[in-house]
Write a protein that binds this DNA or RNA. Structure first.
Lengths: 222, 222
DNA sequence: GGTATAAATGACTCAGCAGTCACTTTTGTC
DNA sequence: GACAAAAGTGACTGCTGAGTCATTTATACC
């Protein structure tokens, strides 16, 4: 068999190397167009939510025609999924428990790393991503699932490991945090809900609330 | 001027006493019909959210015709508001700080009252009401506002008063809870978000989480 | 410049659904 | 039973917006 036929491959849909000699626009330009659509969609979804965002508006914002969006995404749902998944990658909170110095207390380590991340949550629209996942979570269980797997679970695991270490070293006097790592993380989700859904007018300072929680969990009386 | 004219009063729209001699169905039956619409709407909104609920379906579920709903509620939004407001009244969590026994510690009082309420949150669909308020909050700021005013703020105030009392009596060794009553309440909202939006498969026990928080905040080392 | 291929367009189709309204039924009053 | 007034009906209207597709434009290769 010779390498003829099998030519009508749409590049948009497959990302393998072009075996057949290419025609049309460069893959770079295609990628840029795709990205501009995703960016516009993100902005629209953040502003208006899934149901109230129209493909027409996304197209206008991206500076392309409506029909083009359907070349890149088979349906509105697919666009939404792509947008959120891209953002979830960035939402990942970085607390690498392996980086704790040998003689550093768990509490100090958390203050040095996690607290900083938390203060940054409200910037970089991480909280808004969480808001979106929450708001559309019941319509898109798959997305909530991804968020849980990629953002929440790793965080829970790290806290659990740290808590176990702190328990062993005697830094923690009880098993509460080992048993339920959500104890430490609860203020994050509570803060997001309060600030983004329930009381935009009087937002709580999530970083501050989290530090208080750290104080309370590590039983420090000031 | 004599009391003639001004007769075409639709009873549905005004709830004053019937000055003019009444015709048509009894106010009781009218109220029942209205209630059956609200009940059906609640169920539908809980199942599918605002955008995915159709008036047609609500009507079918209530066993009435579509048009009738518009006799009772001017628009879909108005129906939603009515439904949620009715439920918010029931969502009110009962922790009357005046009922604390003179020599009862604040912690004991909270365990006796609030913890019980919290364990009951997941029953009676209070958590589902919260879920709805959160999910539709950005589309209905007015409803989030009502929820905040009628459910959250009173709770915050009570916790603050109790915390102040505990601080005076020496039961609390720091000002954290006085400064930010959300510290105690955070697990509630976090729990709702986790259970209703992010991880339906592995729900946390909100009551348990809340008790842990109580332990931590009141610095009890078991 | 000619040609093949893919990108891009936007007018159009079609479905769903909020809200309307002319009509029917029920209820109470005399 | 006759009437008036309100409750209740459901076919219909009009609009919005997702998704399609025939056509046009851009790009690459010869």
């Amino acid at each position: 068999m010779h390498k003829s036929t099998q030519s009508a491959a749409t590049r948009v849909l497959e990302n393998d190397q072009p075996v057949v000699r290419r025609r049309g626009a460069s893959p770079e330009k295609t990628a840029l167009t795709r990205q501009s659509i995703v960016d516009a969609a993100l902005a629209e979804f953040l502003e208006k939510g899934f149901a109230n965002t129209t493909i027409e508006t996304v197209a206008k914002r991206a500076g392309v025609a409506k029909g083009l969006i359907y070349r890149y995404f088979v349906a509105k749902e697919a666009l939404f999924s792509a947008v959120v998944q891209q953002e979830i990658v960035n939402a990942h909170i970085d607390v690498d428990d392996a980086k704790r110095a040998p003689n550093e207390s768990v509490e100090d380590f958390l203050r040095r790393t996690l607290v900083v991340s938390i203060y940054a949550i409200e910037k970089k629209s991480r909280a808004d991503i969480a808001r979106m996942v929450i708001a559309e979570g019941s319509r898109f269980p798959a997305i909530a699932e991804i968020y849980r797997r990629d953002v929440i679970d790793p965080l829970l695991q790290k806290v659990k490991r740290l808590a176990t270490a702190a328990r062993k070293s005697g830094e923690l006097e009880n098993d509460r945090l080992v048993k339920n790592p959500y104890l430490l993380l609860a203020p994050i989700w509570a803060g997001i809900v309060i600030n983004k859904f329930l009381d935009r007018a009087h937002p709580v300072n999530i970083g501050e609330l989290f530090e208080m929680q750290l104080d309370a969990v590590f039983a420090k009386a000031p």
